[in-house]
Amino acid sequence: MDEIIQILEEIQPDGDYETCDTLIDDGILDSFAILSIVSELEDEFDIRITPADIIPENFNSAAALYEMVQRLQG
């Protein structure tokens, strides 16, 4: 989880990633940021993220990202 928050802070420094659960809905992460995050997650956790995974539910919070990573690793 800490690694994911670190990635988010590095890519988009302005967000409150500990508590915010509307990162997509409130436009904090745009498509550029989403793809940068995908690229980092794929490298860091050795997973493959497909277009089917790019839905707001998976990117709205650090916790949602963590769940997606766990699911794709499983």
Binding site: S31, L35, V38, S39, E42, I49, T50, P51, I54
Partner: peptide, 19 residues
């Protein structure tokens, strides 16, 4: 365009290799 072209192109294998 974002959902059906931009993401599929960006996440394609050849774009991954380019990345």
């Amino acid at each position: 365009m974002k959902d059906y072209l931009f993401y599929p192109v960006s996440l394609s294998r050849w774009m991954g290799k380019f990345g």
